[in-house]
Design a protein around this nucleic acid. Structure first.
Lengths: 203, 203
DNA sequence: CAACTTCCATAACGGACGGTATATAATATA
DNA sequence: TATATTATATACCGTCCGTTATGGAAGTTG
């Protein structure tokens, strides 16, 4: 049993770039969701055949997890950077504006890949769902802690519930991605964010 | 060419109740989404065979639209009742608490059937998607008008953008249903709603 | 060169999908 | 009772799904 893909250079070299193929796969999953993306969709977008895909990535599910890793690392970087902002208000602003750029940009698919993953309901997608839920829980936790710190530092009012505020802000974020998927314009979503920030508590 | 199902009583009478079967179908679509619900899932839950289903409802897509009609009429009644509340704050409160009861109750499936419909990405589900988006747009419009009226009546501050506030509130609503689908507890979502209402502008 | 290893292309696998043809059972009408 | 009409039950259709077996092409190593 081999633990990893052997780093040998023997045999015929592969004719495609694994990293580029993964980027292509990510775009398909992002646009169509796990169930909606067929192997044919994927292989056509990646420019490779099915046996090549299986040799390089394992299977569809493994490919999705790898695409999700890439998505988190590249596209969700703003959610980590947001935590470093000096005040709770700036955290929220960074978060929501980042969501706007990421989920309603011109080049990438509209909406959130994770959201599609969570709501995919095929029986075999349960492992996908669990993965996304787990990742989301860790963002949630980090945000609660950040808002607790903000409360201690005085840039959130004392009566604010950090747990509730986190769920509230993530709900807005999810709503943004839902509306983006449904075809809302960037301008519309900017007014949404402006309103949410106008109602934000504290400084 | 017959325009409607003939109201005759000739021939063998059907052995199941169409209305009850539709309720069963609704629960399946609600829990699994359009693509996730297979004809086998549906017929088993409805207790009928496929030919009976096709004779009574046309096909899967027509069945979904009828189930969506029922869903809107019965489960989304609160969104209409909300508009009759005396102030913008009460409208929001009615809306969000109603969402809690409807999408995080004990008996019905968690989450929002419309949301699953919008995010279903199979090619043949485009008509489903368009239907849901259209229905949602009309709720949106009604809400904007209600908030404009509230502004005129003085229970919303002058600097509030009714369009943005509507998108904001619907985003929270969508976030609630997303989190409910993902397994959030009722208590968690109540804290979310409490926070959202604590931040609500005006009286 | 031959031997070996790895990748690519074709085509097929079993299974599930939405949808239906056919035959039989049950009722109303005449 | 005979006939027409409609519902049910079974079995099947073609298509697409994710996955894989097979044969040959392309490269490295001796």
């Amino acid at each position: 049993m081999e633990v990893e893909t052997a780093p040998t250079t023997k045999g015929r070299p592969r004719e495609f770039c694994v990293d580029k193929a993964l980027v292509d796969a990510l775009h398909i999953f992002w646009a169509k969701g796990y169930d909606g993306a067929s192997m044919t969709d994927l292989t056509e977008a990646m420019g490779i055949t099915k046996p090549s895909l299986y040799a390089a990535f394992g299977n569809k599910e493994a490919l999705f997890h790898k695409a999700l890793d890439l998505y988190e690392a590249e596209k969700l970087e703003y959610t980590r950077a947001a935590l470093d902002q000096p005040t709770a208000r700036k955290v929220a602003e960074y978060y929501l504006r980042g969501a706007l750029d990421t989920h309603c940009g011109a080049t990438d698919p509209k909406g959130c890949m994770g959201l599609l993953g969570t709501l995919a309901c095929s029986p075999e997608a349960d492992s996908i769902k669990a993965d996304v839920v787990r990742r989301r829980a860790s963002s949630h936790r980090a945000l609660v802690e950040r808002f607790e710190r903000a409360k201690a530092e005085g840039d959130l009012p004392a009566q604010i519930d950090p747990e509730g505020l986190t769920s509230h802000m993530l709900a807005i974020l999810q709503g943004i991605t839902v509306q983006a998927s449904a075809g809302a314009s960037r301008a519309e979503l900017e007014r949404l964010v402006d309103t949410s920030l106008a109602l934000w508590p504290g400084k």
